[in-house]
Simulated assay, not measured.
Amino acid sequence: MTFIKISEQPSLYDNLEKMSIHDLLVGINNEDKKVALAVEKAIPQIEKLVSQIVPRMEEGGRIFYIGAGTSGRLGVLDASEIPPTFGMPNTYVIGIIAGGDKALRNPVEKAEDDLEIGWKDLMEYGINEKDTLIGIAASGTTPYVVGALKIAREHGILTASISSNPDSPIAREAEIPIEMIVGPEFVTGSSRMKSGTGQKMILNMITTTTMIKLGRVKGNRMVNMQLSNAKLVDRGTRMLIEELGLEYDEANKLLLEHGSAKKAIDAYKEKH
């Protein structure tokens, strides 16, 4: 059976250069409305994945994202947001992109075309059976990702994939394939659009849900966030005011003394 890339089929819109700015924006927005519905259909697979990630991470396992181009950049982005948001070390969620950090800003020629380099990149982190590998590729065909998933699965590592085409090569290599079928892009083949938006949504869902289940959120607040700027210090101070009924200055002092809202709350409650 021939594998058809729905994500690279011709756009439902044509003569884009002749359209008004308003019509272009409305067209893009209309296509974007389809993304959340496509992600919704993938929730059972996302749930299956998170339910297996959580116990692995409780035993010291990590999440690895691997991808090329836009997909790789989105994996690195999600990984980079875990420490400031949830106060976790940057060793727990790791994003790997074909071509290395240079590829975050500039394309690296042929970096994604090798079936073996992805696994070599993962080996630098000592990936093992406690870890989870999530391959990201809108097309579902990126050799760098396909090869990494195949070898990782052979080594007993939990594998998942996120793609925008059904029955793709990366889905066949992954234990838990997540297929988000968003249809043709507004600009034909431009997977940075709907596919990229959907990937970002799914990555947010995976890590946010995992971190909540690991106890990194209290109520609905980021009590473990890093206090890396004045805005976050103020937010943390107000968390303490609401939770403990303190005056602003006292709450602020307590927060800075302990370094996180959670530690400050726990320490205060222990004394009182």
Results as ranks from 00 to 15, higher is better:
4 I>G: 00
13 Y>R: 09
18 K>W: 03
18 K>C: 03
21 I>K: 14
22 H>T: 02
29 N>L: 11
30 N>M: 14
31 E>F: 06
32 D>R: 10
43 I>E: 09
46 I>T: 07
52 Q>H: 11
54 V>I: 15
54 V>E: 15
64 F>T: 01
67 G>K: 06
68 A>V: 01
68 A>P: 09
69 G>E: 05
72 G>W: 05
76 V>G: 02
79 A>V: 02
85 T>M: 02
91 T>F: 08
94 I>F: 05
99 G>F: 14
107 P>R: 04
115 L>Q: 08
119 W>P: 01
120 K>W: 01
122 L>F: 12
123 M>S: 13
128 N>V: 00
131 D>V: 13
134 I>M: 02
150 K>L: 05
151 I>T: 10
153 R>H: 06
153 R>I: 00
155 H>R: 14
155 H>I: 02
164 S>V: 00
170 I>A: 15
170 I>F: 15
172 R>G: 08
174 A>F: 01
177 P>I: 01
179 E>F: 11
181 I>Q: 12
182 V>N: 12
187 V>P: 04
190 S>V: 07
190 S>D: 09
191 S>P: 02
191 S>R: 03
193 M>D: 04
195 S>F: 03
196 G>F: 05
198 G>Y: 00
202 I>F: 05
203 L>M: 09
204 N>G: 09
204 N>R: 09
207 T>S: 15
208 T>G: 02
213 K>M: 08
213 K>P: 00
217 V>K: 12
221 R>S: 07
223 V>P: 04
226 Q>A: 15
227 L>S: 10
233 V>D: 11
239 M>V: 00
248 Y>E: 06
249 D>F: 07
251 A>C: 03
256 L>G: 02
257 E>S: 12
260 S>Y: 13
261 A>E: 14
263 K>Y: 05
263 K>C: 05
264 A>F: 10
268 Y>Q: 08
269 K>W: 08
270 E>F: 06
271 K>H: 09
